[in-house]
Design a protein around this nucleic acid. Structure first.
Lengths: 242, 242
DNA sequence: CCATTTTCTGACCGCATGGCCAGAAATTTA
DNA sequence: TAAATTTCTGGCCATGCGGTCAGAAAATGG
């Protein structure tokens, strides 16, 4: 089934989530190969972000990249591989950034503040990547019709956030609540923060992120009737947005 | 530009949100007309929910409805009108249900409980409608490429929820926070509750909804250090989900 | 400098889409 | 019943899609 000429990609990469494979064999690539792949992925991000997934055809992406359509087929096994490599690249960049910011932080309060803040900070500098990711997650489907990156592929993320909440509950820092629902709702609030920002570019993303920290801190912290400002609450102001 | 035979619809309906038009002139329709339109809309909901917006072609919808493709073109001005009528129908059913449940409720605590609970209850009984709405909101675009029902069309909803929060703040029932961010986050949490439920059908939707009430009650209520269980908090249990 | 390999082009293929329409069928009206 | 109108069918069209291909162009290397 593979193209007979051209390097293509590794077509059968499996079913894991976006960053699921550190087991990628990474075949050697010539210089041109690496440059072209990066160039095409960048073009794909721009076109998807600007025109939406459905309108982001191979022809559009090729035109944006300044090459002919066949080049994409030459350097990638097909559109599916192009999209998957694009997701991997964006997702890994975000993940490693957040992880580096999170390193060394202890306690649920600090974790909340740094987690939300660093995601917002990184995405504020990568708007196209953000928009493209959103389009891909909601539109890209496998051959059998299921969303390629659906809720199911967020499972590792949910599980991790859930663990953080559970640890906070065990330590007494957080109240009793359903950690899975809280994790899903936190991701939801972050997602929609970006969606709202995308259509209201003048909206203050950093301030929104701080409000979100505040929201989830109030929602999760254990009750300390008196010292509600002495227990390391992550934030302390309520600026009026917009 | 209009079809020369057949009733079609009213093509130039404007740009308002889903339920924006109570000014719909509702032209007289024959019995067959009404039956066919309902039948086709129902088929559209099923196909979109099951196969996704992109795969929901006129041919697919016609086949599901048990009629030939041309019938849709005869009764609707085009695919766009079919989708818009579908959204209106689903959205208005939900809206009137929630509004009836909300009537007579006073206080932010009761409002939160009834608002979240009634949306969840109604949607639990209309899974296909819910899935179809989600697909349409994220995929359906106007001719110029913009999402037909984007964040912008949720503005009236956001504004209303915002008002409820502001009233609660003025009455002293709720703490100081950014009402817009809270409104966006509440809608986000509700949206994702359904998304999560869609891919985890065994998930307990009602319990999730109760957790959400709890979450936003803790996030928004004013601090009453001692009587945090005596001030009419909407919910009082933390069942472990899943 | 020429042979070999890598890279690229632009035309082409089969397919699915939304919309269109001539005419058939069914229903209503006179 | 006969004419008029409404409703329906199924095939057709132009368009755009992802993917393929023969051969041109460029890079490589002996």
């Amino acid at each position: 089934m593979r193209s007979e000429n051209g390097p293509g990609g590794q077509p059968d990469e499996g079913t894991g989530g976006p960053g699921s494979g550190k087991a990628a064999p990474e075949p050697e690539r010539s210089l041109i190969e690496k440059v072209r792949r990066a160039q095409i992925i960048e073009a794909a991000i721009e076109v998807i972000a600007e025109r939406g997934f459905a309108k982001a055809s191979m022809a559009q992406i090729a035109q944006r990249a300044g090459v002919s359509k066949g080049v994409i087929s030459y350097h990638f096994a097909g559109k599916n591989e192009l999209i998957e490599r694009t997701v991997e690249q964006v997702y890994e960049a975000l993940g490693s950034f957040v992880q580096s910011r999170l390193a060394g932080q202890t306690g649920a309060a600090a974790w909340l503040r740094v987690y939300i803040g660093s995601i917002a900070a990184h995405m504020a500098d990568h708007r196209s990547q953000l928009a493209a990711l959103g389009e891909i997650f909601t539109h890209f489907r496998t051959d059998d019709g299921e969303l390629r990156y659906g809720i199911a592929s967020s499972e590792p993320l949910y599980a991790h956030v859930e663990d953080v909440f559970r640890a906070g509950q065990r330590s007494g820092e957080l109240r009793a609540f359903d950690a899975r629902v809280m994790a899903v709702s936190l991701q939801a609030a972050i997602d929609h923060m970006f969606a709202y920002w995308s259509t209201h570019p003048e909206h203050d993303l950093a301030a929104h992120a701080r409000e979100l920290v505040d929201l989830f801190w109030h929602a999760t912290r254990a009750q300390h009737p008196d010292d509600d400002r002495a227990d390391g609450g992550p934030d302390d102001h309520h600026p009026a947005l917009s």
